[in-house]
């Protein structure tokens, strides 16, 4: 499994996942792994500070949701989970990042596409 901790690419992945719907930290790590068939690992030690940073920049927003423990009393307080949502500013940033990524990929492809085929003996 590849260790994935390049912050730029990780930001792109996180913003993309959040553009599909609200999520929370642990779910994001699982979604990244599932989507990439396990080749992409969003390490929690990188993910959570990055979420904080994205929130500080106003690219995502957060809210807490209380999770009722199964079997607990109705009025009992359970754990809380922090949900993240992409903000309009975050969507705009994501669009810019996607455009930049595609332009970069297309640029590199022009070189790879022009690579001469190996001559057959």
């Amino acid at each position: 499994m590849a260790l994935f901790d390049k912050s730029d690419s990780a930001q792109l992945v996180v913003l993309s996942l959040l553009a599909e719907g609200a999520s929370y930290g642990y779910q994001l790590t699982k979604d990244a792994a599932t989507r990439s068939s396990g080749t992409l690992r969003l390490t929690p030690g990188v993910l959570y500070p990055m979420l904080k940073s994205l929130e500080t920049e106003g690219l995502i927003t957060s809210s807490w949701e209380e999770i009722k423990a199964q079997g607990s009393a109705e009025d009992g307080t359970g754990r809380r989970r922090k949900w993240y949502r992409i903000s309009p500013k975050g969507r705009k940033r994501l669009e810019q990042r996607i455009a930049a990524h595609r332009a970069y990929t297309a640029l590199i492809d022009t070189f790879l596409g022009g690579r001469p085929q190996e001559e057959r003996p």
Binding site: T43, P44, G45, Y48, P49, M50, K52, S53, T56, E57
Partner: peptide, 20 residues
């Protein structure tokens, strides 16, 4: 262990909060 060293993680959070 997946979260890594507490001191490094604290620094990363610090960087995420303080620079602004």
């Amino acid at each position: 262990a997946e979260l890594g060293d507490a001191a490094s993680l604290a620094r990363r959070f610090q960087d995420a909060i303080v620079p602004s």
